[in-house]
Design a protein around this nucleic acid. Structure first.
Length: 216
DNA sequence: ACATTAAGTGATT
DNA sequence: AATCACTTAATGT
């Protein structure tokens, strides 16, 4: 069950539709290790040495940047069909992770050892495209994160955060505390509580203990 | 019943 | 928008 090759093949097919050609798919199935993680698990931490790259089959991973004072800021989410593209470069030049990746929703993925990453870039055109495309996606999301930090006021950022989260979790009922939101946005809980209250007043959300329902 | 944790609020900077 | 200081409400033991 642990490393059922046909299972891996099936999962890869459904989550990475038509991305990998047959020979590459065969190699991934042969080499990849199937792994599951639970919410709050730490996939990779800042300054960790990368050994594997995750290809995400299912679930959600949040990617965070942290400064010296342990202040965090949410950068973006990874979901089905994604990979941590930034980590590729980290792998290739053997440097350490710049980010922390935490499981946001129970996740299954296929781990690829780093020595294969570079091989495949040379060997497989589809892999090459996958990497470049994934890098592009991450860069786009990063720019979006910068935009929202630089140009949006906190109330808009907060609402964007909630709707992004709703989208990626496919659930308009979020189970989250005001404190956790404050951590992700790097602000204080009191401020989050107040802004949420005002969002509730204008009918954009409904509040409950540990719960937020986003109106559609 | 009591302690703990989450959320609400006025006042101050 | 942040911080303080405090209250109220919900939940766990």
């Amino acid at each position: 069950m642990k490393n059922d090759k046909s299972l891996i093949r099936k999962k890869l097919r459904s989550s990475f539709v038509k991305i990998f050609d047959k020979t590459l798919l065969d190699e991934i199935v042969e080499i990849g290790i199937y792994k599951s993680f639970e919410k709050e698990d730490l996939l990779i931490d800042i300054d960790d040495q990368m050994t594997h790259i995750p290809l995400i089959i299912d679930g959600v991973v949040k990617v965070i940047r942290e400064d010296k004072n342990n202040d965090e800021i949410l950068l973006y989410f990874l979901e089905k069909g994604d990979t941590c593209a930034i980590s590729f470069i980290n792998c290739i030049n053997r440097s350490k992770s710049m980010f922390r990746a935490v499981i946001e929703k129970d996740t299954t993925c296929i781990m690829i050892p780093i020595d294969k990453i570079e091989d495949w870039i040379i060997k497989h055109k589809t892999w090459r495209h996958f990497i470049i495309d994934s890098y592009h996606k991450r860069l786009t999301e990063m720019v979006e994160a910068i935009d929202s930090l630089a140009f949006l006021k906190l109330d808009d950022r907060l609402y964007k955060y909630l709707s992004d989260k709703m989208k990626i979790l496919h659930n308009q009922n979020l189970t989250i505390t005001h404190q956790q939101i404050a951590d992700d946005l790097n602000t204080s809980r009191v401020v989050v509580s107040r802004l949420l209250k005002s969002l509730e007043k204008i009918g954009k959300i409904e509040l409950g203990r540990n719960k937020i329902k986003i109106a559609i």
